[in-house]
């Protein structure tokens, strides 16, 4: 017994891609849920790992800068966490997103679904996880007396920009990685350099003038500046930096989509 909806379209001959009855958003929802469920299966700490890893990283920098070099600034712990927590989410999105097609090779060869949903689902799952981390951190921020509600729009914008940037980079890297497995090795080096090329453990104002253009050209800088503004300082970041970062993120997203659209039809043959 066919349902009536499919009877209406049955006479139309079309290419087979996208001939599933299930709407793409539903497939995306299922894939995100899968990511979230699988992430901490058979793990005792489970979700807490999303806190433990960045907190450990923050503790290391706290030790180095405040106790060894004695250069810390006011509120350095909060300052550090406001950068390291989103960085951790970005880092995980890029690592898992880049290998998403290679990791799911068998599924891609055997089932048709819009390929773009796979890397996007990984980023959404990581962002959902980060939202829970962010909720906890926001609670700490409010308890320590920061009027979060006055500056929260910066956090929302930062989340948006971080998501666009993650999707743009991952769309490119995930398909490249199918053809060139070197990408998944290079990505760790790339992320390490990016970590220090972004004002995460240091403040933008401390960067020497000679290096400043490079740091400012990094779209992640504007993301971090907005998290800082919304969660720690309450001082509006430089609008020029934000606009540049937003523009770059959109360009990266467009390029990512372009590369993806060109290469993704061949994934089932190559992966």
């Amino acid at each position: 017994m066919q349902n009536h909806e499919s009877d209406r379209v049955i006479d139309e001959l079309r290419p087979p891609g996208g001939s599933s009855l299930v709407p793409p958003m539903e497939i995306l929802r299922v894939l995100v849920l899968k990511e979230l469920k699988v992430k901490y299966k058979r793990s005792i700490l489970g979700f807490l790992w999303s806190l433990v890893t960045p907190i450990a990283l923050a503790a290391v920098y706290l030790f180095v800068f405040v106790y060894v070099y004695k250069v810390g600034q006011e509120d350095y712990v909060k300052f550090l966490l406001a950068g390291i927590l989103p960085w951790h989410a970005f880092n995980l999105s890029l690592l898992a997103g880049t290998t998403s097609f290679v990791d799911n090779g068998p599924t891609i060869r055997k089932v048709y679904f819009p390929r773009i949903l796979l890397p996007v689902s990984i980023i959404i799952a990581n962002m959902v996880n980060f939202l829970m981390v962010l909720a906890l951190f926001s609670l700490v921020v409010v308890i320590t007396g920061f009027p979060l509600w006055l500056h929260f729009h910066w956090v929302v914008l930062a989340l948006l920009l971080q998501s666009l940037l993650s999707v743009g980079v991952v769309l490119t890297l995930s398909v490249w990685n199918v053809y060139l497995r070197d990408i998944q090795q290079l990505i760790s080096i790339f992320l390490m350099v990016l970590f220090f090329a972004t004002p995460i453990v240091y403040d933008l104002s401390l960067v020497p003038t000679a290096f400043r253009p490079f740091i400012l050209a990094n779209p992640l800088t504007s993301v971090m500046q907005m998290y800082r503004a919304g969660l720690v300082t309450g001082v509006a970041p430089d609008l020029g930096v934000i606009l540049l970062g937003a523009l770059e993120s959109l360009v990266i997203l467009a390029l990512g989509y372009w590369v993806f659209a060109r290469l993704s039809p061949h994934l089932a043959k190559e992966v």
Binding site: R14, P15, G17, S19, S20, V111, H266
Partner: peptide, 20 residues
């Protein structure tokens, strides 16, 4: 036919939903 592989040349057309 399932849409997993794009044709190098030629056409594959289907009417209605597919499950493979």
């Amino acid at each position: 036919i399932a849409g997993i592989l794009p044709p190098t040349r030629g056409n594959v057309l289907v009417a209605g939903s597919i499950s493979s």
